[in-house]
Design a protein around this nucleic acid. Structure first.
Lengths: 168, 168
DNA sequence: AACTTTACCTTGGTCGGCCAATTAATGGGC
DNA sequence: GCCCATTAATTGGCCGACCAAGGTAAAGTT
């Protein structure tokens, strides 16, 4: 099998019977949709001085006020180091302020700056239109069905991964 | 409003009426599912010497044999620079080989190395079980429905973003 | 009180992604 | 034949995300 020529693309490896797009249709779809969605979010947030991902953190701060970093880590389900670095950048761009927690000298309290509040509505609108764009052409029944199925999938992935002590 | 205590979390900003989780339910769900899915893929690929994202590129190479980089860029819908860097790393780890395209001196032909073919089935199995884990508890009708809705969403995001000259 | 464990955060490194700008080769119009 | 637009890749810089290790402070044990 090493010397035969066959069709140019075939037998590159073992004479593989199946093909990419069929091996995990939903998995592939999730990947693509996620990246497209993130890109779209990035564009929607273009004029807001926020990078995709930061808006979720800011939303949480706008909603909950001053919180300690651990809370963000749990709420956004991110790695601690990720949050640290995001906050460093957000602090540098003036969207966030950090101060030591008087009640626990290990902890840090984080809150949105007053200036950042100007972005609040802009972000809300951006996410609104993003949601609308995402769901265009889906009737209400389909939307709730999609949400239900995604929730189920999320639970599947979360449970089996088993790194969610309390979120599930 | 600076001195009042109110509820601890409220009025951090404008007295915002709505709240994070409600602003874009599907968008949030997509984000979370995507990250969980990616993490799960990473774990499944842990013993395979591949990082999440690389497996899709390799799958394409295994399926199609030697292709030029442009084809990967279009097939995976990634930025050219992303593909370049991924290939540099994959080349360094010995999974991929690059050689100049004799027909076009600008282009580069990429193909999976023979060694990488050992991973072929492992990756296929990993994605198979990942797919199964993702869809656990969904009956066939729900699966096809999910797939259909995701395709619709993908088209929405792809069309409006309008950076897909031919893919849509 | 002294020791051990646990919790909170940071640092350094690596990857996948994007954008902007560059180089090099091809191809079309004239 | 010559110039110019197009296409193929690369480089550098940035961000989100992860892991592994480290340092400090709090809580629990004995």
């Amino acid at each position: 099998m090493t010397t035969g020529r066959a069709t140019p693309a075939e037998d590159a490896c073992t004479n593989a019977p199946p093909l990419t797009a069929l091996s995990g249709p939903v998995s592939h779809a999730v990947s693509r949709v996620a990246r497209l969605h993130r890109t779209a979010a990035g564009k929607a947030l273009k004029g807001v001085d926020l990078y995709p991902g930061q808006e979720l953190l800011m939303m949480h701060l706008w909603d909950r006020g001053a919180v300690r970093q651990t809370e963000l880590i749990r709420a956004l389900d991110l790695d601690p180091s990720t949050v640290t670095k995001m906050l460093q950048r957000l602090e540098q761009t003036g969207h966030v302020r950090r101060r030591p927690d008087p009640a626990d000298r290990r902890a840090v309290l984080v809150e949105a700056t007053d200036e950042s509040c100007a972005l609040h509505t802009a972000v809300r609108d951006a996410w609104g239109s993003l949601e609308e764009q995402t769901l265009a052409g889906l009737d209400p029944a389909e939307r709730t069905e999609l949400l239900r199925l995604l929730a189920k999938v999320e639970e599947n992935l979360c449970r089996e991964t088993a790194d969610c002590p309390d979120r599930c």
